[in-house]
């Protein structure tokens, strides 16, 4: 993974907020791409499987770029950052670590497509807003990465929005499933919009805009979409039911995911694979 910006000296006052922001960005994308990779081969139809996988690949590619920025700040190599950190060290939003549905990805997966499309759409929109803000980050290497990552988000958004709108408009069982999925996603969506305990410092150092500004922007953009499918969503629906991932609170789903995704890596972390 070669990314721009080598080891730029960074003000020690800024560093904790900067690294926390980067961990959030990297861990969010990494764990959601992992959940996407479990879907591979199991989507509602073959053409969609192929399209979805491209999005998971893009997203994992973005995680790799953010881990590279952390690595450049002396946080360790990208593969150990991705594979070797405990759940308590991870700063991803809890929503993104939740399982795709009941069952194991190899034998009994009964994955929930409604949850997949809603989680991905809502997240992609939040990510787009965050990255648009990061394009003006005072940390230049991050601003440069944000500019690149942003390019691929148009497709992600178009793709997920198309699915969400069509399934919402389909009525019947689909509508019921979609509303349940939206409820589930919103119940933990505060965890996605949250920027953690150093949010204030992040804004003060112009690393990213204020958490509240980004949240209002998300609500503003989503409002007409919700209206177009006759759904009423209020700010009060957005919660953090299963904990705040930004401070290392996670579910058992993340532990299971980590043991799977690091299974081979852990055989010998020093070996070349």
């Amino acid at each position: 993974m070669n990314e721009p910006a080598g080891n730029i000296p960074i003000d020690s006052k800024i560093k904790p907020a900067l690294t926390s922001l980067l961990y959030q960005l990297a861990d969010d994308d990494f764990i959601l791409a992992y959940r996407g990779s479990e879907w591979l081969g199991l989507a509602p139809h073959i053409e969609e499987d192929v399209a979805f996988s491209s999005i998971s690949q893009d997203t994992m590619g973005h995680a790799a770029m953010f881990y590279q920025l952390l690595s450049n700040l002396g946080e360790g190599n990208v593969d150990s950052l991705a594979h070797a950190r405990e759940a308590s060290e991870r700063q991803n939003a809890v929503l993104l670590e939740l399982v795709n549905g009941p069952g194991h990805y190899l034998s009994s997966a009964q994955y929930d497509w409604a949850f997949a499309v809603v989680r991905n759409y809502f997240y992609s929109q939040a990510k787009k807003i965050r990255l648009d803000s990061l394009k003006n980050s005072s940390y230049q290497p991050l601003a440069e990465v944000a500019l690149k990552v942003n390019m691929e988000l148009y497709y992600h958004l178009l793709h997920w929005k198309t699915w969400v709108i069509q399934l919402m408009q389909a009525g019947g069982e689909a509508r019921t499933r979609m509303e349940a999925a939206i409820g589930k996603v919103l119940a933990d969506f505060e965890g996605v919009l949250n920027l953690g305990p150093l949010a204030k410092e992040m804004a003060e150092h112009d690393l990213v805009e204020k958490e509240e500004v980004l949240k209002q922007r998300w609500l503003f953009i989503m409002k007409p979409v919700f209206e177009s499918v006759n759904l009423s969503v209020s700010e009060a629906d957005i919660a953090m039911k299963n904990g705040n991932g930004r401070i290392g609170e996670h579910t058992a789903d993340l532990d299971d995911a980590l043991s799977t995704l690091s299974e081979v890596y852990s055989i010998n972390p020093a070996a070349s694979w």
Binding site: H45, E47, V50, A51, S53, Y155, T162, W163, Q166
Partner: peptide
């Protein structure tokens, strides 16, 4: 490709 309608056909096309 197979898709239920042209909007979905369009979002599948490039990656397929």
């Amino acid at each position: 490709l197979l898709a239920p309608n042209r909007e979905l056909a369009l979002v599948m096309a490039q990656e397929n």
